[in-house]
Amino acid sequence: MADWLKLFVDALPQFWVGAQYTLLLTAAGLVIGFVLGLLTAVARAYGPVPLRAVAISYVELFRGTPLLVQLFLIYYGLPSLGITFDRLPAAIIALGLNSGAYQAEYIRGSLLAIGQGQMMAARAIGMSRWAAIVNIILPQALRLVIPSWANEPISLLKSNAIVFLIAVPELMTKAKAIAVKTYDPIGAYVAVAIVYLVLVFILDYGLKWLERLARIPGFELEGKKA
């Protein structure tokens, strides 16, 4: 136990560096995913048929295949088509595209929950479709989606660990290095597991606080997903 504690304490500086990359990946993936997800959800709900088809294909493809495969396709596969990315950008792109598909579904769910009544009321006072979406639908939908959307940052925080397989210097990569150095894989990975637990805990707490800030009394998604 004492040995492990020593391992843990010695590892902290490296974990700190790794954590910064992990958090960067999480934030970048989240933001890109949000933009993509929002555009996709709106396109799917309100767009013309060809745009809707693109939106649906994107979502089905990225939710229907493993993140790891998407990562390898982008980092290893694209160069053979002439598009090359460095590790970090490749990781961020993969995470962003993947997250976008899931966020699209969350947002789409809340767009559906808002319903047609709101759109009708907006058009009835002469708003254009686009104005209605921006001024009436989205402000409500984005408020409504927060509780279920809150799953996504935590999900991203956990899923970006796999980018160690393309040697991005984040937490998992550091853990592996320590495992090799100390000949104690279990000790090293348990150590990094604890770091992740702490990060998830903090993130979860922060999200709950944000949720509370954003809540409109009486305005909640009724019923949970079956």
């Binding site: 925080l157 970006n160 660990a161 998992m172 853990a175 279990i186 990975y189 597991a193 637990l197 998830v200």
Partner: peptide, 15 residues
């Protein structure tokens, strides 16, 4: 559920 699956996988695999 608070730990990335890959990390758990590695720990459990070695154990």
């Amino acid at each position: 559920r608070g730990v990335p699956p890959i990390v758990l996988l590695f720990i459990l695999f070695f154990v």
